[in-house]
Amino acid sequence: MEPIKIFRRMRLIAGEAENLVRPVRLTNNPIAFLDTSMYSENCGDYVIMHYANLQMSKILPDSEQILHIPTHGWDESVENARRDVRKIACGTNLLPWDYEKDHALATPRTHLGNYAHSVCLLAVGMREVQGQMRDFTPYTARFLRFLFDPDCLHSVRDEHTKQRLHAIGVDNVLNTACVTMWNLTEEFCESISRDRHDEVLTTITEYAQDPRQDKYMIETLLRNYDRVHLWIQSVDDRPYLESLDIDDSRLHLIDHSFEAFDSFVKQHSESIDYFGTRLHAGIHCLNHGIRSMIVSVDNRASDIARDTNLPVMPREDLQSSMQSWIDHSDPVRIILPTDNIRKWKGQFRSLTN
Score class of each variant (00 low, 15 high):
residue 189 C to K: 00
residue 345 K to Q: 15
residue 238 R to K: 15
residue 25 R to W: 00
residue 261 F to S: 13
residue 56 M to C: 00
residue 324 S to C: 07
residue 92 T to Y: 04
residue 205 T to Y: 13
residue 153 L to A: 01
residue 138 P to D: 11
residue 190 E to K: 15
residue 279 L to P: 04
residue 265 V to Y: 06
residue 345 K to C: 14
residue 126 M to D: 00
residue 27 T to A: 01
residue 72 H to V: 07
residue 72 H to K: 15
residue 49 M to G: 00
residue 73 G to C: 05
residue 216 Y to K: 11
residue 134 R to H: 12
residue 272 I to K: 00
residue 303 D to L: 10
residue 336 L to V: 03
residue 39 Y to S: 13
residue 49 M to F: 12
residue 86 R to G: 08
residue 230 L to P: 03
residue 265 V to G: 08
residue 20 L to M: 11
residue 321 S to Y: 08
residue 2 E to W: 10
residue 119 V to R: 01
residue 92 T to W: 04
residue 204 I to G: 09
residue 261 F to R: 10
residue 271 S to L: 07
residue 26 L to S: 02
residue 338 T to S: 11
residue 29 N to F: 01
residue 288 H to K: 14
residue 190 E to W: 00
residue 238 R to W: 10
residue 65 Q to L: 10
residue 220 T to Q: 15
residue 160 H to N: 10
residue 343 K to D: 03
residue 14 A to Q: 10
residue 280 H to M: 09
residue 304 I to S: 06
residue 158 D to T: 06
residue 313 M to T: 06
residue 100 E to F: 10
residue 166 H to R: 09
residue 15 G to S: 12
residue 144 L to N: 05
residue 277 T to P: 10
residue 211 P to S: 14
residue 225 Y to I: 01
residue 13 I to E: 07
residue 207 Y to F: 12
residue 301 A to C: 09
residue 237 D to F: 08
residue 177 A to V: 04
residue 261 F to Y: 13
residue 306 R to F: 04
